[in-house]
Design a protein around this nucleic acid. Structure first.
Lengths: 239, 239
DNA sequence: TATTGTAAGATTGGATCCAATTCAGTTTGG
DNA sequence: CCAAACTGAATTGGATCCAATCTTACAATA
């Protein structure tokens, strides 16, 4: 969800402790997180015009960090900037969704295979941890934004052991660009139960270090989500 | 090579013609192109510190557009920015090269397959055009930067008909990040002859709309380049 | 009426100036 | 003699102000 924004050096310990434990955060990074949150949370829908002055006033900063934040968000695929016309929350056509998901389908199964080749027991434990966190969040009925974050954390845990940071960054961007549309699909209880079951199957195969099976499950997992999102987008476009 | 920088609305007709044909270019875009050129051309080697003030003075602009240009270049993978520490031309380890090229190996053969499904006769003609432009440039002995640009134009022509702009953007970024290291490999006459032969084979298979063969050739083409670059990087790291 | 031209307001792009952080060299205390 | 603390310049991050561009509404003309 974060996209690797720099500036935050760790958790943000809210309280003003003495000898403040490194809560250094550049204003640009704060603004970027703020806007990204609104977009991912659906508060700024696709097509929404983002006015620099409005954001600046809202956060009590100047327009400079807002502009630089928008540039980063454009790199993450969340907004589109046109010269002298400002930033608009990027919209996703059905074709774009197919585009993004098929790219993920090429990359993620491959990466998970590499991950299984190299993963340590600790890495497997981390996958289990993030899976359980996701399950707990569903049980608690957490909001979609949090669910999305944890869903992505699970995917990250699966792929991270591959040791391919550049590919991971690409996959992250692809995910970010479609993320908020997945939110609609992940809400219904039925879809949640399905995602949960698929995550468990994935983890089981991963734990057994069964590369072929894991790749197959991951492919199906992504393709399923893609199918539903594309159907939804086509439906919206028609209606 | 461009990465889709905005601001240029067409060719830049140098002369100050009456009714100037839309030579509008934002300063940020100019600066970004300038720095990108230096990096790709090898003038700024990996690890080189980029000082905002120096660039600003050199181009006679303020530091604001320089900073924003650097943000765009970071998205293109050409520089790395660390808070309060400025931008450094990104370096490529052998592991990074493997990372980048294997990602391309997942995406490009897939995309060329899609391209063949959908390509028109005009699209095939464009591939031939860009291939011939590359051949002429080699015959003329053009500089490595120009060769790199034309090599990429050929790849673009092969993949563009797939109609997958998001995937294309990803591939472009992956290419940009390794591009300038390929320069070293592309210079020797022997390597040039090989690249040229492979391009011809690719075009032939593409023209026949032989998806399987084209994908196979493209895979080998990319893998070959990857192998040489990785070997070179390992050599440098050792020596 | 449809189209073109024009002017005012809104909005973004860029320059200049100030603040915060980093870094290199030096000093100080052990 | 070395490590830690300090001091200054160098450098980046951010605020304020000005310029360039776009948008919208309205008027003029065919």
């Amino acid at each position: 969800m974060d996209g690797g924004r720099r500036g935050a050096e760790g958790q943000q310990g809210q309280r003003p402790v003495a000898a403040s434990p490194l809560r250094r955060q550049t204003v640009t990074a704060m603004v970027a997180d703020h806007i990204a949150g609104k977009i991912i949370g659906g508060e700024y829908p696709g097509g929404h015009q983002i006015r620099q002055e409005a954001i600046a006033a809202e956060l009590g900063v100047s327009r400079i960090p807002v502009r630089e934040a928008l540039l980063q968000l454009e790199a993450d695929g969340l907004v589109v900037i046109r010269t002298h016309r400002g930033a608009v929350v990027s919209e996703l056509s059905a074709e774009d969704a197919v585009d993004l998901f098929e790219a993920r389908l090429q990359l993620e199964p491959f990466l998970v295979g590499k991950a299984i080749e190299r993963v340590s027991d600790g890495g497997i434990a981390e996958v289990e941890t993030s899976m359980r966190a996701y399950e707990r969040a569903i049980a608690r009925g957490d909001d979609p934004k949090e669910l999305s974050r944890l869903n992505w954390a699970f995917h990250t845990a699966l792929l991270e052991p591959a040791g391919r940071p550049r590919s991971m960054a690409v996959v992250q961007t692809l995910f970010n660009s479609a993320d908020r549309y997945l939110r609609l699909q992940i809400e219904p209880a039925k879809a949640q139960a399905k995602a949960l079951r698929e995550h468990r199957e994935l983890f089981e195969a991963f734990r057994r270090r069964d590369a072929a099976e894991t790749a197959r499950l991951l492919t199906r997992h992504i393709a399923d989500a893609a199918g539903e999102i594309v159907a939804q987008l086509r439906h919206e476009a028609a209606g």
